[in-house]
């Protein structure tokens, strides 16, 4: 296995990803599709859970509405209508979801929509499991303000989950599986149960290697998260605000 020591200057930042807002306006159909995929990957789960809670819809109906919403985004070119100067993309999408579900109700045109949107696998069963376990407690989400916070929290959960997944792939590609396993063992599962010393003993490496590996993994996790975040923001200002919200300010 490759020596997993951090070298300063190693693994510098890849080129900045293009914002989905810019990409959907591209004349290149492939780029537009990629943008929608990125958006869908980050938002489908928060939107599904939001529809389940805010609109109190059964699972099968919420699944249809979630897929229908992304089709609506594509057909009605909702992303192209988004103005980053007027607010955050996240808030815009949530308002669009509300409007979409409300209009669907009025028109009574709910229909079964098969397949996945934009080639993104929508694992509704996993989302349902998450709702049933950790987060679905309607009594704890009484007001629209709380639902807004709920949506933001779920969005952050989705963003971090995607970043962890990408970090895993990144580690595999760089032959740093052990680094990811350390990150997983300490930062994702057991930071309050396990110590650096215990990890060092388990992997038969010096404690300093554990420290360096975790520092590297956290740095890469932060970089990947910020790159995804940049992609999902309409402007630099929005990105800075969202970056602060993701890593800085307390979550409500």
């Amino acid at each position: 296995m490759r020596e997993e020591r951090f070298q300063p200057g190693d693994d510098r930042f890849p080129p900045t990803r293009r914002s989905v807002i810019e990409a959907v306006r591209s004349i290149d159909a492939e780029e537009r599709e990629r943008a929608l995929e990125s958006l869908c990957a980050a938002y489908w789960k928060p939107i599904y859970k939001y529809i389940r809670l805010r609109w109190n819809r059964p699972a099968d109906e919420a699944q249809d509405l979630t897929q229908g919403f992304f089709i609506e985004v594509l057909e009605r070119e909702l992303l192209e209508k988004f103005d980053p100067k007027k607010g955050r993309l996240r808030t815009y999408l949530r308002v669009c979801v509300d409007s979409f579900v409300s209009n669907e109700d009025k028109a009574g045109r709910r229909q079964k929509r098969g397949g996945n949107v934009a080639h993104v696998a929508l694992d509704f069963a996993a989302a349902e499991e998450e709702l049933g376990g950790a987060v679905m407690d309607p009594a704890a989400i009484p007001s629209p303000e709380s639902l807004e916070e709920f949506f933001e929290k779920e969005w952050l959960r989705s963003l971090f989950s995607l970043a962890v997944e990408e970090l895993h792939q990144f580690c595999v590609a760089r032959e740093r599986e052990r680094t990811f396993r350390l990150f997983e063992a300490y930062d994702l599962e057991g930071h309050d149960k396990i110590s650096y010393e215990q990890l060092a003993k388990e992997y038969a490496i010096p404690v300093t290697d554990v420290t360096n590996a975790l520092a590297w993994a956290r740095r890469e996790f932060r970089r990947i998260t910020l790159a995804r975040l940049r992609e999902l923001c309409g402007s630099e200002e929005e990105f800075h605000r969202e970056a602060r919200a993701a890593f800085g300010a307390e979550l409500k």
């Binding site: 950790a134 989950s161 930062d187 599962e189 740095r219 932060r222 998260t225």
Partner: peptide
Amino acid sequence: MKFLSDKTIEHLREAAEIPDLTGT
């Protein structure tokens, strides 16, 4: 995709915010 609990998210936010002072 791995489900991240609220506690894990908070830990990740704190851990990733820490500046990397390697090489300084």
